[in-house]
Design a protein around this nucleic acid. Sequence first.
RNA 1: CGGGAUGUGGCGCAGUUUGGUAGCGCACUUCGUUCGGGACGAAGGGGCCGCAGGUUCGAAUCCUGUCAUCCCGACCA
Length: 610
Amino acid sequence: MSDVSFPISYAVKSMRVSRLMLVTLRDVPAEAEITSHQLLVRGGYIRRVSAGIYAYMPLMWRVLNKITKIVQQEMDTAGGLQTLLPQLQPADLWERSGRWKAYTEGEGIMFHLKDRQGRELGLGPTHEEIITKLVGETISSYRQLPINLYQIQTKFRDEIRPRFGLMRSREFIMKDAYSFHANEADLKATYNKMKVAYQQIFSKCGLIAVAVDADSGAIGGAASQEFMVTADSGEDLILTSADGKYSANQEKAVSKAAEPLLLKGDEPSVINTPGQKSVEELCSKQLLNPSQIVKVLAMLALIEDGKEQPLLISIRGDQELNEVKLINALTNQIGKLVIGINSITQDQLHSQGLRNWPLGSLGPDLEDSYLNGASSWNNEFLRLSDHTAAELNCFVCGANEIDKHRNHMNWSLLGGVPRKFDLRKAKDGDFSLHNPNQKLQETRGIEVGHIFQLGRKYSKALESSFTNEAGKPEPFWMGCYGIGISRMAQAAVEQHHDEAGICWPIAIAPFQVIVVIANIKDASQKVLGEKLYQALQTNSIEVLLDDRPERAGVKFKDADLIGIPWRVVVGRDAESGKVELIKRSNKEVQLLSSEEAIEALIRKISASIK
RNA sequence: CGGGAUGUGGCGCAGUUUGGUAGCGCACUUCGUUCGGGACGAAGGGGCCGCAGGUUCGAAUCCUGUCAUCCCGACCA
């Protein structure tokens, strides 16, 4: 089993540190922000070449290969077929799927270029287009389905902001798989199989990863789950119920909002609220609770056809808007892709040639006439209301007049109860929907894998079809499944390190054992060290020999930093044939004869990488 | 792209306010002493001060432009 671009078996199972090109740093380079990034740079694993572009040094390459090998095994076991697809992709393919513009214009993330003939090409950030076309051309019958193709290679994304070393880089190694099915049920079966395979992969690599419900984002499609490596430095927020039955990315998470405080219902009235533009100010001055207020947000949505749609979003004052949910709700409402949303500012009103709006005192019933004469905006509001706002019976809201609000309002005074959408952010402490006794907790995570049920979006767009049982052409049902290989390596460091350095899980460590000869000039130490090194090699253990003429302390520090799971120190007891066996993760030390040490290592290592 | 910051040997920094021709720690080379938790001493090598203009007798330092990098927001494996 081998692959041209990613050889997985090592000709070299062992190495002398003196020949390893190991350069460790004592100082943390200023560029590195999070621990895992710092440790990888200090340990000589990676070097930055440009923003978001890194060279993988020999030790790192071994780690990446270890991960690759585990991924290949699990993918192959789950019925995957490995391929290698081109990175340079013609624009017309992306135009047919409708993604060329979205991926290249504005804040598009595809690197793109023109060749000498003036043809446009993109550098692949993902491979749905290519694979869909390829399978469409190759597969003609439902009898040939399902198939699941995967590849492991470098992807390119012109990230808006590369960050955190390999966590968000512009060039990174990814495993991506695409499955093709004759029907939805079969897609679901493979999707579930992939979910199991993913759990296997992460646990075999020694990572604690949780599967969470996710938004399917720009890639599109129906069901989708993300695999998160839990870590405080993670960029994503995850909400999990205490019973473990529900977990979701905050973008997607649903929950039951806390009950609002009842607002005792007098007659509706207008109240003076000078300078009270925010919910906080209003509450403190008027002695209200945020849950008694309907807050109205004026926003602008950018639609794929270039139209600009003003929005009025109503949400309860104690709740926060989830923009991902809003975009999805809008896309459903309009039937067109919503590219982006942002708050409307006074400046924008001026440039549209509109009169001032009572921002800070908006009510859900702000008249469409405020949009009259807008230079490029649609001149009717699209009004959306979150459950929490729509369900209030008596509330305070803006009076559509500066420095005035209305007290004791109800929806019938505003033209009826609006349609309800789920637009709010689920938060730490909310109750879960499946069991109202379960509180949701917030954790941070690093997204290392994502699986999607794409459905027929791409196969329809690219007219990629097979002949079904009835003899009729039908677009494929598709799934797609990604794992960030290089990101995973860094996530492993984020999850497994201490003050002294990295503590690699043994399955993905660049070497399993490091034999440190404390004093290379001591003949008996040298002889015993070499003997151990040989013996471990003979037993197929991946072993490093630190034979450098450094002082012992330097070698210990380096061994801790680079994080080899087992360390054998050949030192002052070498004369009597004794060595120390140290476990990196907990610093546990055993004084053993060299034979015992070899035996212990064989036993422990074979048990831990089964 | 918006907001903030920084560019000085491989890495970490000082010097910039108040212009006078570049310094410290780590790393590197050689020698000696040391030798189980990043040793010590001595001697050395390495920098067009991000780049381009300008001001000046003279610019790392002042001015203008530009590029790059990092941090905070929108994107994602």
